[in-house]
Design a protein around this nucleic acid. Structure first.
Length: 531
DNA sequence: GGCGGAGGCGCC
DNA sequence: AGGGCGCCTCCGCC
């Protein structure tokens, strides 16, 4: 009886060949379906789509956007616990009692409001694609958690032991860390020093005559003192131990799999976030532990210089697009004499997209602006809009939030006739800060859309390659990079699928604009070998 | 003893 | 030195 009950699922009849399941929340519904052996082809995630449509400038005139805040706005990020609850509900729908789960008629109503909002836009195809991609992302996230990233605890332990020494007893420092701590203490003449305490370390550094304002790595690197080298090494290894050490392994690796909890749409720009496990910050040091099952391999693919390419296409900057054709786009800038080294090119491009004003990146900006006025003009316009408190919008229609009450109040005070200089200065600082956010938003958000389309297209192609239980599947996604776990004999097919999907994503977002989305692929037996 | 900000650093 | 995150410890506070 359970299957037929699916009380909160509505079927959208838009396509009879490839039905799209419409539900309130993929993270709640899909995990139990996966556990029951069901794979869903397509869906429309009402919660995720609602969030986009409420905020988007393209649907600002819709009934959905104009309505007061309602349950679809308050819907809390579903927790893993909620997903477990979903499992229980699935097994025994009578036990419902879940006020936080929408009823079918509520979902039908919300769906029609969403469809109306989309239909009311000038180019409904744009936002329709965004909603489809966002929803596909939700399916992929659930599937990746279910399938898990293949992880060798043995390799991981070996890496940790090599770098830190054998796993210590609870509460003790690993041998290497203890040795480094001792070196730091003796170099600073501070036998009681706790190297984990920034305040403690700062005091000790000053006591030996060093001029420092913090214990940040980049500041310490400038200092000459025998304590610095072991201190930096201590910080590096301590970080590894704390973030991805044995405790992390115990908590997150089970049966040879790492199953992080991905949060699609978890970042304002549309990037994913994760909850627990820090999956999006896996340090290079431990990537060697990502190894395929016997008879399988990893296809690691990375969209090279994704954001500069997205910027070129967004702004219609043919010169910048051309610089990236057939080559590394940063090298393209060097070849065209815009800057003198790849490092400078990278620093300048990233600076343009983040809003650098000082340092090397700041100095290179004028050259970049002269060579690529359209591209730089686009990010400058986005910054100006943000400084004035306006929204900006990505390629497919995700809009930035408006600044908060506090920000507006500060700007208001500064605009008054008798504004104090200090208020005016603070307002300028905050305005520029919001401008840097909106400047980056358009590029980062559009790049996230490209990545979602890429991954959705790849998922479809992989599904078509399924060979019984030997099903190549996505196991990792990191903003502009994916890992596919595939049977060895399917690696080449997967590689083609990755490239085809990338080309398709470019066409979906930018039509015929001549931008090339370069993708590097590596077929490897360890994630560490991918770069 | 729990909470939350600060400091710090990993990833893109 | 400039965007987006998550998560760890420390440390002051209730």
């Amino acid at each position: 009886m359970a299957r037929a009950e699916l009380p909160a699922v509505v079927r959208d009849l838009e396509s009879r060949e490839r039905p799209r399941w419409v539900w309130d929340d993929t993270a709640g519904w899909y995990p139990p379906l996966l556990a029951a052996g069901v794979r869903v082809d397509r869906c429309h995630d009402l919660r995720l789509c609602h969030a986009i449509l409420r905020q988007s400038e393209l649907t600002a005139e819709s009934r959905l956007a104009a309505a007061p805040r309602g349950p679809w706005d308050d819907a809390a990020e579903p927790s893993a616990a909620a997903a477990d609850e979903g499992l229980a509900l699935f097994a025994a729908p009578d036990a419902l009692g879940s006020e936080d789960r929408a009823r079918p008629e509520e979902m039908r109503e919300e769906l029609s409001a969403q469809l109306a909002a989309v239909a009311g836009t000038e180019q409904p195809g744009r936002i329709r694609l965004l909603l489809a991609a966002e929803s596909a992302g939700a399916l992929i996230a659930a599937e990746m958690t279910y399938d898990g990233l293949p992880w060798s605890a043995e390799v991981h332990d070996r890496v940790l032991t090599e770098l830190l020494g054998p796993r210590p007893r609870f509460g003790e420092r690993p041998r290497k860390l203890e040795q480094l701590a001792e070196s730091v203490r003796s170099a600073l003449g501070a036998p009681e020093l706790n190297p984990d305490s920034p305040a403690d370390v700062l005091r000790a550094l000053r006591r030996v005559g060093l001029t420092v304002t913090s214990t940040r790595k980049w500041e310490l690197k400038e200092l000459r003192h025998p304590a610095i080298e072991p201190l930096l090494e201590y910080k590096r290894l301590s970080r590894l131990l704390q973030a991805n050490g044995w405790a992390w392994m115990d908590a997150w690796i089970h049966d040879g799999r790492f199953r992080p909890d991905y949060v699609p749409g978890g970042v304002v720009t549309g990037r994913w976030a994760t909850r627990g496990g820090g999956a999006l910050q896996l340090p290079r040091q431990v990537r060697g532990a990502v190894v395929p099952d016997p008879g399988w391999t990893l296809v690691v693919a990375d969209a090279a210089q994704l954001e500069p390419r997205v910027l070129a296409a967004l702004s219609g900057d043919l010169a910048l697009a051309e610089a990236g054709r057939g080559t590394d786009i940063y090298q393209g800038l060097v070849d065209r004499g815009v800057v003198d080294s790849r490092a400078h090119a990278k620093s300048a491009m990233l600076g343009a997209m983040y809003g650098a004003t000082q340092g090397e990146a700041g100095r290179l900006m004028p050259r970049l602006a002269r060579a690529y006025p359209r591209a730089i003009g686009l990010v400058e316009d986005a910054a100006r809009a943000g400084e004035r408190g306006l929204k900006v919008t990505t390629r497919l229609g995700r809009s930035s939030p408006r600044p908060g009450e506090g920000w507006l109040a500060t700007q208001g005070r500064a605009a008054a006739e008798d504004a104090a200089p200090a208020d005016a200065q603070r307002a300028r600082g905050e305005a520029r800060e919001w401008g840097r956010f909106t400047r980056n938003f358009v590029v980062q958000g559009s790049a996230a859309e490209w990545a979602l389309c890429w991954m959705a297209g790849l998922r479809g192609r992989l599904a078509a390659m399924a060979d019984g239980e030997r099903r190549p599947h996505l196991v990792f996604f990191l903003h502009d990079e994916v890992i596919v776990h595939a049977p060895v004999d399917q690696a080449e097919q997967v590689r083609s699928a990755v490239l085809d999907a990338a080309a398709e994503a470019g066409r979906l977002l930018f039509g015929g604009f001549p931008i090339e989305f370069a993708v590097t692929t590596a077929v490897v037996d360890s994630y560490a070998d991918a770069k």
